[in-house]
Nucleic acid binder design. Structure first.
Length: 297
RNA sequence: GCCGCGGUAGCUCAGGUAGUUAGAGCACAGCUCUGAAAAAGCUGGGGUGGUCAGUGCAAGUCUGACUCGCGGCA
């Protein structure tokens, strides 16, 4: 039993999936997806989920674990991912944590401890009615420490903080992390911005050809609400708006392109802070880095 | 050729009766991240106001000429 773990992260359309297959094969590994949208069943084309064929026999975990009608959260992800990683390691194989959802990756590799108060949608709805200023005032009174660090204009975060304070009758605990439980190597796939945009463009065309719009139609038919589809963002959001005749087809593709570019930038902003990441361009560089940084792998 | 409308930030446009450092949305740049994270938010840089002249203490705002674009009539 080892505690080795290789993480492959990077912005959308950077080529993580391809790389992960090659590396998993080479190092006798299994893939654990770290993608907040690929956890949903029947969301395949729009999320760029790897196909059975593309897996080339390499086992994949944390794909299709829940219904798009249900809400899935980091905490659930963390639990399932840790379990999968553990099982892979038990077989003396190397788990490859692959994806672009920084928050999920952080939860797993740094073991951040998230307050164990589950979302109370009734309470949230009630708080939703209040103004941002009112909510901030409330938090300031109930938990001055959290009020100091929180973004005072972010309603969603304010409500979550209040949810914890109200239910536990205690301040939001300081962010804690578990002791590192993995010997981790983090690879970041980097592409220059122009190339990334081009990759997003090509990918979008390909997905449309593959029937991405029909996929969204099907989801709607199976009972996923428009609101929910819009919540998923990017392709799902703008295709849903198009199908409701709220935007034209051209607006739809333009928005998906732009929003994907923005998303990629946001992802990079998140990743940039983590100095443990080895930034690489391709498979060759990845191999070099692994040999040098973690010869034992 | 005549009539009308318009020319303000990279784009689309706001800017009663002329009066402090000209605004918004989008775009662009940077950032945040404690059970929604493809989510939810924050900060910032940008404009010789089509050109020239005139009237005012003061002109994006009024007047004239010119110029470019759009629509209509001939």
């Amino acid at each position: 039993m080892t505690n080795k773990l290789i993480v492959i992260l990077g912005p959308t359309a950077s080529g993580k999936t391809d790389l992960s297959i090659k590396l998993a094969k080479k190092f006798d590994g299994e893939v654990v997806s770290a993608d907040s949208r690929q956890v949903y069943k029947r969301m395949d084309i729009g999320t760029g989920k790897i196909t059975k064929k593309e897996m080339e026999g390499m086992p994949h975990h944390l794909l299709d674990v829940t219904s798009p009608k249900r809400k899935f959260t980091v905490t659930q992800y963390k639990k399932l991912a840790l379990k999968a990683i553990n099982e892979i390691q038990k077989k003396s194989k190397i788990p490859f944590l692959v994806g672009g959802t920084g928050f999920y990756i952080q939860a797993v590799i740094d073991g951040i401890i998230i307050p164990s108060i589950k979302p109370d949608w009734k309470l949230r709805k009630k708080l939703e009615k209040k103004s941002i200023q009112e909510l901030f005032k409330m938090l300031k009174k109930l938990d001055p420490r959290r009020a100091k660090s929180i973004e005072s204009k972010n309603k969603r975060r304010l409500i979550r903080a209040l949810e914890i304070v109200i239910k536990t009758k205690k301040p939001v605990p300081l962010l804690k992390k578990n002791k590192p439980q993995f010997e981790v190597l983090i690879l970041g796939v980097k592409k220059d911005p122009e190339e990334l945009k081009e990759r997003i463009r090509k990918r979008l065309l390909k997905r449309l050809k593959q029937g991405m719009i029909a996929e969204v139609k099907k989801l709607r038919k199976s009972g996923v609400s428009w609101k929910r589809l819009e919540e998923f963002g990017l392709e799902y959001k703008y295709i849903a708006l198009y199908l409701q005749n709220k935007i034209t087809k051209k607006e739809m593709t333009d928005r998906i392109q732009k929003e994907s570019e923005h998303f990629a930038k946001r992802q990079m902003t998140w990743f940039k802070r983590d100095k443990r990441i080895y930034w690489i361009k391709d498979y060759k560089e990845a191999i070099k880095v692994i040999k040098k940084a973690k010869p034992s792998f």
